[in-house]
Amino acid sequence: MISIDIKTYGLEELEKPDKKTILRYAGDPLGESLKNDHVLSDLLDSVISEGESVIVPRICSAECAVSVTGDRVDTVFGEISSALLAKHLEGCSSAVFMAATIGIGLDRIVTAKSRVSPAAALLADAYGSERVEALCDHFENGLRSELSGKGCSTVSRYSPGYGDFGLEYQKNIIGGLQCQKHIGLTLNSCLMMTPTKSVTAVIGIKNGAESGKRTWKCRECGMTECPFRNAEEEKGKE
């Protein structure tokens, strides 16, 4: 029997929206276009304030046992065949399966904006991506500090669709956590989530304190041509 944890977050619990990240998602890799551009800055501010009035951040999650054998990960939600995930979860005896969303309100805003201002729609969409990532970060950080008190540590979240971890597995997570009922999250026949600003992921749990340093998310990823790659992080490499 799995136990599902459901939580709705107040906006004040999350970090404030990070404008540089929003701009990065909107196609400006360094998030520098705000400098000396009050027209863009005003538009971004209005998009953020409208967005903040409609988003409802929600997460449902469950901690379950996992066992890694070769390229396979066995879980209560069904077996995962993924060499990369198996490597990522090496040494983990359990994992938290999570689904996060900021709700359908932002989808409505993006749809409406795309009719009157594609620039505002682009920024609203980027704002949504930034928020759902911030929500996941908040959850992950909370989990890490909770577990460190118990002498355990986490490995960073890993989502279906990355590397060889198939998108199909979203079905198992969304079905297993009863996401439609708990957080209003559904999957269409092409494996796209509604609300669009949603994330499903697995966070591995290890016994013992955190071994290595905090990971660099973009730098570790194999997709060097990714348009959203964090250029600042790249710079920080030197």
């Binding site: 196609g27 400006d28 276009s33 027209v39 863009l40 538009l43 971004l44 594609p118 620039a119 682009l122």
Partner: peptide, 12 residues
């Protein structure tokens, strides 16, 4: 030297 948000705002 400019990015997508500004390109779109100019287009609008």
């Amino acid at each position: 030297t400019v990015y997508l948000p500004q390109l779109l705002m100019s287009a609008e």
